[in-house]
């Protein structure tokens, strides 16, 4: 894999995390697409939960490291609550009220630790624009109780200075790459290395989760398919032996034929007129 294909996106710069209250201002929503695809990612170590949406249990015993969804959710406001398995929604350990889900978007909601180790919920808008033929999209999200990190591929930093709860992304040549996460500016490996199989025409979203202090750092991956593009064309011949239609000489011949006919006709006509 050529590392030059990574667009180095500064942490924070390309972050699609949106404040829950600010979601309503999302404007790139076509009028006909009232539903959004919503996934839920569990990145809080050792804490299985039940997930309630608008007071109804939607996920039962949702385990750390699991990804749920996508659900098709109508545009609107949702109350999301996480409880210990089996406990009533009233005793939620983490909740967000009136979370605005815009229409026509693809969203991942991550339950994770903040940099200081406190549980929180962060929504990310997933970039589901098409990738060029032959490419794959890699998105890395820092959702762990850990300091600033760099993400390396084949030992070379590709995303630098990534902080919680931000993301970095780039479209890269499809294929396999060995990746790891190091403390920013160092060679101290925090997570990995792991083989990343970046399938063409997909987005692979890797979440760094857990806690550095608790030695529970790990990754959760989510894949979005169907982002492929067709090749620019299929050039498959330069010999000309199979050419159909007509060549330039044909136009010459046709032109000459027409001229001869016309010329001869005019002469005939003028000759006859002359004789009268």
């Amino acid at each position: 894999m050529k590392l030059s294909y990574f667009r180095r996106v500064a942490a924070g710069g390309a972050v699609a995390a949106l404040a829950f209250t600010g979601v309503g201002s999302f404007t790139a929503t076509p009028a006909y697409a009232a539903t959004s695809k919503v996934s839920v990612v569990h990145g809080i170590p050792d804490t299985p939960v039940d997930v309630y949406v608008n007071g109804e249990k939607t996920l039962d015993n949702f385990k750390p490291g699991d990804v749920a969804g996508p659900l098709n959710l109508e545009e609107g406001a949702y109350d999301i609550a996480l409880t210990k398995p089996g406990e009533p929604v009233g005793s939620a350990i983490l909740k967000v009220d009136n979370a605005a889900v815009p229409g026509g978007a693809n969203i991942s909601i991550a339950a994770h630790l903040d940099a200081a180790g406190q549980p929180k919920i962060t929504p990310f808008v997933n970039d589901v624009s098409k990738v060029d033929a032959g490419k794959a999209r890699l998105i890395v999200r820092h959702t762990a109780a850990a300091p600033e990190v760099d993400v390396r591929a084949g030992g070379t930093p590709v995303f630098e200075g990534l902080t919680n709860p931000n993301e970095a992304k780039g479209d890269v040549d499809a294929g396999s790459v060995q990746a790891d996460v190091v403390l920013a500016g160092t060679d101290t490996v925090a997570i990995g290395p792991a083989d990343l199989n970046l399938k063409e025409g997909t987005a692979t979203i890797v979440y760094a989760i857990g806690s550095a202090e608790g030695k529970t750092l790990d990754v959760v991956a989510q894949t979005i398919t169907g982002l492929h593009s067709a090749p620019g064309g299929v050039p498959s011949g330069d010999g000309g032996q199979a050419g159909t239609g007509v060549d330039t000489w044909w136009y010459g011949l046709t032109g000459a034929g027409v001229l001869l006919l016309l010329g001869g006709g005019v002469r005939m006509a003028s000759a006859r007129t002359g004789r009268k």
Binding site: W250, G264, R267, M268, A271
Partner: peptide, 28 residues
């Protein structure tokens, strides 16, 4: 003069006939 004109027209017809045949033969 008339004969020349006739010959020219005959040649023209011949050229167009060939062109038509080629065009038809090349149609995919």
């Amino acid at each position: 003069r008339n004969r020349g004109a006739l010959a020219a027209m005959a040649a023209g017809v011949a050229a167009l006939t060939v062109a038509t045949l080629v065009a038809c033969g090349s149609q995919p």
